[in-house]
Amino acid sequence: MSLISVYGSFIRNAFLKMLAYRARYYTGIATYLFFVAVYYFIWQAIFAGKPEGYRISGYTLPEMLTYVSVGWIARSFYFSNIDDEMDDLVRSGQISVYLLRPVNFQAMMIFQAVGEALFRITFFSLPVGAVILLCFPINPPPSSADFLLFALSTALGFLTMASINFLVGLLAFYFKSVDGIMRAKYNLINLFSGLLLPLSFLPDWLRVAMEVLPFKSIAYVPLNFYLGKVPPEQIGSVLAGEFAWAFGLLAAGMILWTRAASRLTLQGG
């Protein structure tokens, strides 16, 4: 079996797994609607009484509402459970089975996440997007080039997110329970990726730090591409930055995986 079909089968299995959970599928769609609703109303309230076209930290109300809706729709695509699944594998001891297989574990996990993401984009993001579009106003991007940049940037965001999740998943080798850490990661990323609010809202010292760190690739950068807010002369360097972080984190995961896995064999499974 060729390498492509091996990893292809991971993608396929992820599809089947996602389809098996019917209740979660429906509630999942509803959840995204709730999320968008909460932030939609918060932003409405923030802009209440302000004149039309008023900007806060560089965003008008229609821009902000689009930012929130598109942000959550994109999240339904890039979100992944790699850390949670690695935790399960370590807890149940099944991880040792994977160590025996002639496949790269990290690649397998990431391809599984790709499978889930492809599943989500077809069966989840589209219906979520349709429902949100019906309930809340979303403006189209200024040009199709902006949309393409958004799509490319989101794909890099997905890779960044998956790599971070893989790194967090490695902690399962070191701690008895990583539930708390995973919850903290979840909240930190929602905030510092710019999903909850654009990073331009942060106080200066924190904003500077977040400009350097990789989290902005996940939401803030793609959404600014969508809104056409990235100046043309910066597009190249912004994408290069996303690229560098995504693959840097991937490489870090690869190196640290070998160390974590050797811990397992030392303990005797």
């Binding site: 701690f175 329970s177 539930d179 708390g180 850490i181 919850r183 903290a184 909240n187 930190l188 929602n190 905030l191």
Partner: peptide, 12 residues
């Protein structure tokens, strides 16, 4: 570790 994580969750 969990306690610190929890404070982080609350703080974010």
């Amino acid at each position: 570790v969990s306690l610190v994580a929890n404070i982080l969750v609350g703080a974010t």
